[in-house]
Design a protein around this nucleic acid. Sequence first.
DNA 1: ACAAGTCCGTTGTATTTACAACAGAAAGAA
DNA 2: TTCTTTCTGTTGTAAATACAACGGACTTGT
Lengths: 219, 219
Amino acid sequence: MKKYISILKRTRLFAGVGDSEIELLLPCLSARLCTYKKGEYVLRQGEHLSDIIVLVDGNLHIQKDDYWGNRSILGQISVGEMFGEAYVTPESGAVLNDVVALEDSVVVYFDVKKIITTCSSACRFHATVVQNMFFAISEKNRKLVQKLGHMSKRSTREKLISYLSEEAKRKKSSSFTIPFNRQQLADFLSVDRSAMSNELCKMRDEGLLEFQKNKFTLR
Amino acid sequence: MKKYISILKRTRLFAGVGDSEIELLLPCLSARLCTYKKGEYVLRQGEHLSDIIVLVDGNLHIQKDDYWGNRSILGQISVGEMFGEAYVTPESGAVLNDVVALEDSVVVYFDVKKIITTCSSACRFHATVVQNMFFAISEKNRKLVQKLGHMSKRSTREKLISYLSEEAKRKKSSSFTIPFNRQQLADFLSVDRSAMSNELCKMRDEGLLEFQKNKFTLR
DNA sequence: ACAAGTCCGTTGTATTTACAACAGAAAGAA
DNA sequence: TTCTTTCTGTTGTAAATACAACGGACTTGT
């Protein structure tokens, strides 16, 4: 666990909390470390959850496969990001999506009850963590709304423009690398891969953008 | 303001807080009442926000119109529900969507800073509100994920099935009324109204469901 | 009651997308 | 290297969707 404290320190959840304080907080929040090999499932649709999870190493996808084998990728989780926060309220039911490791990954589980129930005065940074968690969920919420913005576009081209310009804005550069290959991007935007590939090339030919593999440049 | 306390008491945000306590909390949270006539905008895309808002009377839609006039309805807000919570973190930028009153509506603004900064011991229910807000946002998050589930379906029929069966589950009955007319439902699911109308009738002819106006019955 | 406006279903056509299949490029393994 | 496997772009066809347009049912306001 100790080797990941420096990473936890840089996460949203522990912003403003120092190394030594984090070490004190960890047992107070019932922190548990778990490792997953590439391809393993961190969460499965239908499970119940009472923890918030932070990725400290590796890379995860939030996805769902339907009865006909169509895969939807709802999002991607990078090191330092939090997930599972939508399923920890008393009323929330089962987990709606799978979370799968794209590479060997390490996560830390935190008991939500412990987080929201401010404990003894021993850990005075507890309140900071609660506030951080609030901000983190709020931010997540915003991301979901943004994704809904992409998804609500009617055509493949519009979805691509919506997503790519969003990424450009986020990375503050017209050149950026996306965390998806073509199939994954198609699953993320809920479109057909070949149709999307087609559209991307058309847009390139029209001079709207350039790309090499996962690196895109908007014009 | 007083006439809405009984409504606030029944909201998620104030669950477990009594009438008299709410009255004490209101000034402590910088509560401000605002009324909007049918058709007026409560929030506009691009605005900045530092409040959480609760609807205490009326009915609202969260929506966005693009350059070409296509409207997307991201969600609908009923009395007692909270919104705006995604835009109140230090880093969150402008509001991404419009919020418009479908009928004459009344909302209450709460200063977020006041909420998350636990105040003097005078209002001992403050901590409860913080926890409630956490649950409420978490719940909202879940709703967004569910909507993404509908949106990620490829065909109009699948989107309809996804949405309608979700509603049936939520209302715990195979008969239920939806808060949208046809055009609004189409905007909500990001499909063409006539194509959707067509599909609905096909499904009815196949015996999958029945409907009169906004009342649906699944078979 | 009447007029104006809205809502809903229906139809035909043009456009777009999904699906299947394939070939070349790139990446990995033996 | 050579052999696989994966990834990407391309094409043709079938299917689904968007768009425009219209008539009837229902509302609303005068």
